[in-house]
Design a protein around this nucleic acid. Structure first.
Lengths: 231, 231
DNA sequence: TCTTAGGATCCTGTATACCGTATCCCTGAT
DNA sequence: ATCAGGGATACGGTATACAGGATCCTAAGA
């Protein structure tokens, strides 16, 4: 028992196997998003290796992965540093995100199955509950999960692989700046547009949501910059 | 002596330095695109390392990079295999490409400088010459260069990093299927739209071009499938 | 002859150790 | 206070080793 859903041939005995490098990468990514490693932090291979109790190799590979995800930048022979997102980087992030989420939303509207829509409704319900109890962190997570789900609904795996790393950076950013309460209400409306099955309507909502999001980040960043003028 | 350009402090004595892993990656990518390693080929680390006269490490890192670019898929504990692009993969590729190139084109229209436009005109001229002399390979390269240039014109570095790996796969595909002659004429018209400075016009041309491209690949792939029915 | 069990083999994933060298940082002299 | 010199540090790469999963080959059995 305990194992379920294993219809045909290839089994997932140890489907939960994950190379060490991937686990290290996940751990480091989380630390960056959680601001344990703020922008500018140097990621020293030997330090991390020692701390995680692994050899340098998986750490190196993890760092390379984070580099291709845009979380760190490695300077030749100097190593990896957690990037600081410039104003322009953020604009670009939203540019690309907007276009891709519009596409995702459009495809989701025509391709999502009933079962999938139900699942997303569940996530929204979770968010609603977090909103009512004022659990800011849980609401943030629900919001992030929502975005990931929209992507899945698109049934476009390339879209997912391209957008996922960006989502990571976006979540990172929003966690520093955004207000999860505003976002949540938007998500509900957006979702209904997708569930309606109209690609155009879904696209319109996606675009609106992305722009709202961008505005929120912009204002919060502008405020912050006034408080802390350039060094 | 013999050294030049060393005015101030840190100069680019060895600005052309490139980590070994990157050179290995470039080499392997080229081999895939050139069909030296056709779809299904296993990339065995030790073999490649021996052949290139490097250790396994840079090879591993190169393979990881190619994985994140979508050229190979690695199965845990089994290693990397050159991917076969399924019909769906190709559709997804064009989906994403279309949206992103529309964005690139739109931004290029408003941001490109005169000097940049001149440079692109030069590339088109090169293509025209290749067309006249019937140099298919040169024309293909000019076409590929053109797409890369449009990206640069957008002045959106994220867009470039996201789209570049896809371009690689696209070029790979087009080299197998496409007809460079048809594409060239399209490029000229598209470029004029960008040079006109109208974002909407540029976007429209980008979309048209992407769709034409998609159709070309679709038909050629359909033909091929008829000739070689499923194994 | 076909199937199957078992073992040999290949190759990845990870660990260790080590070297050259670029960069950084500290110290000391001017 | 500035600048040069000399470690110390840590990356980039090599070489080697080894456990264990995946594959393949072979030989025994039905």
């Amino acid at each position: 028992m305990s194992r379920q859903a294993d219809a045909s041939g290839s089994f997932d005995i140890d489907a939960d196997y994950k190379p060490l490098r991937d686990r290290v990468r996940d751990e480091l990514r989380q630390r960056i998003i959680d601001d344990v490693y703020p922008a500018g932090t140097r990621l020293v291979e030997t330090e991390i290796a020692a701390q995680l109790g692994v050899s340098r190799l998986p750490v190196r590979e993890a760092i390379r992965a984070l580099e291709s995800e845009g979380f760190v930048k490695t300077i030749p022979r100097r190593g990896a540093v957690v990037v600081e997102l410039s104003a322009q980087d953020i604009e670009e992030l939203f540019d690309v995100r907007e276009t891709l989420e519009v596409l995702a939303s459009r495809q989701a509207a025509t391709r999502a199955t009933k079962a999938e829509l139900r699942r997303v409704r569940g996530i929204l319900a979770r968010g609603r509950k977090a909103l009512d109890t004022g659990d800011r962190v849980a609401l943030g997570k629900a919001n992030e999960a929502f975005h990931d789900e929209i992507l899945k609904l698109s049934h476009n795996s390339l879209l997912q692989t391209v957008l996922e790393p960006l989502q990571g950076r976006l979540h990172w950013l929003l966690r520093q700046t955004g207000d999860p309460y505003d976002l949540f209400e938007e998500h509900s409306a957006w979702f209904e547009a997708i569930a309606s099955g109209s690609a155009d309507l879904a696209a319109e909502h996606a675009r609106r949501h992305a722009r709202l999001n961008r505005e929120i980040v912009r204002t919060l960043l502008a405020e912050r910059q006034q408080q802390a003028p350039p060094a």
